[in-house]
Simulated assay, not measured.
Amino acid sequence: MTGGAAGGGRPKASELKLRVISALLLAPAVLAIVWLGGWFFAAGAALCSMILLQEWTVIVRATRQRAAIVVAVVGIALMLVAAALSLTPLALGLAFAFAALLWVWGQVSGEAPVGWMGTGVLYAGLTGVALIAFRLGSEGFVMILFLFAVVWATDILAYFVGRRLGGPKLWPRVSPKKTWSGALGGLAAALVVGAAMGALVGRVPVSLWIVSAGVLSVFSQAGDLLESALKRHFGVKDSGHIIPGHGGVMDRVDGLTGAGVVGYLVAAVLAGSLVDPVGAVIALQGY
């Protein structure tokens, strides 16, 4: 979503065409994996996490830290297996244990990139863990569709509204193209998604769907800004070039990381449980 959400300026026609074609090709595949669920979805989430780690490694200039990379890969693999086995607390424990190991290793060795790999374990690993945990929940299929719809709507409308209206910048020091008009346009789109899901799915009041969509939209845009801040810190334009017109996978799922990870943790706090927190929150409300 970098350069997209809450953005300003005019997109090049060729870039926009590539974005549309890539989205049309990737969206059906993603939705098919969501529908299949189970180990198919876990495998897709794992692939996403590993690509995120690879891109993170390049951004933070840790490609020569081979031992640290191996530790990070092993840590994320164990986290994802634990999540796929519905052992979410164990997965989170492993995430912070491996991150702490790499942080301490970086401090002791004086190798800053090793420490950054610890943060990468959290960023890439928790993205996969949150997605898998959401999908395994009692409302898993609907919640993943809702999460994706909110993030995609936020991204798309922020991109076009920001470029059409322009105006004051959202955070120029971190992402000079993002505007307040784009951010509010993305938020408005997410609220519409919430209302639509409430009308179509029901289960809980429409107002709860709308509020949840708004919160996830904010988290999504925060994830976008976090990635922008990381790339600006290291002087990197795109996280990669794997997706034509979009850059790297991180450029596309930064908002999903923000909304998925923080959204899951907020639900867990509200439910008082890391296991199926969305289902637990719904049950606590008596629905």
Rank of each mutant, 00 (worst) to 15 (best):
D224V: 00
L208G: 01
G240R: 02
P172T: 14
G223Y: 07
V211W: 13
M197R: 02
K231M: 08
S217E: 06
T179G: 07
L187S: 11
V193S: 08
G198P: 01
P168C: 09
P168N: 10
P168Q: 12
G240K: 02
G202F: 04
S207P: 00
A188E: 08
T179C: 01
G167K: 01
F160E: 10
V218M: 11
H241Y: 06
L165N: 04
G214P: 05
S175R: 11
E227R: 06
L184S: 02
A222P: 00
L170V: 11
V218K: 11
S181I: 04
D238H: 06
G182N: 13
V174C: 07
A190M: 08
W180T: 14
K237R: 13
G194T: 14
S207V: 15
P244L: 08
L187C: 10
K237V: 05
T179I: 08
Q221H: 11
K177Y: 01
G240F: 03
V218E: 09
A213E: 12
L230T: 03
S181V: 06
P172W: 08
L200T: 09
I242N: 02
S217L: 13
G240Q: 02
L230Q: 02
K231W: 07
L216V: 12
P172V: 15
P244T: 11
R163K: 12
V218W: 09
L208C: 01
P205V: 14
G186F: 08
G214Q: 06
D224G: 03
A229G: 00
P168L: 07
L216P: 00
G185R: 05
A196M: 11
Q221I: 04
S239H: 03
L184A: 12
S207A: 15
Q221C: 06
L184I: 15
V174R: 05
E227C: 09
R164F: 09
S228I: 10
L165Y: 13
L165D: 07
V204D: 06
V193I: 15
V236F: 05
M197T: 05
A195F: 13
L208P: 00
V218A: 14
S207M: 13
G186C: 12
Q221G: 06
S181W: 09
G214M: 06
R163E: 02
G186N: 10
R232Y: 04
A188S: 14
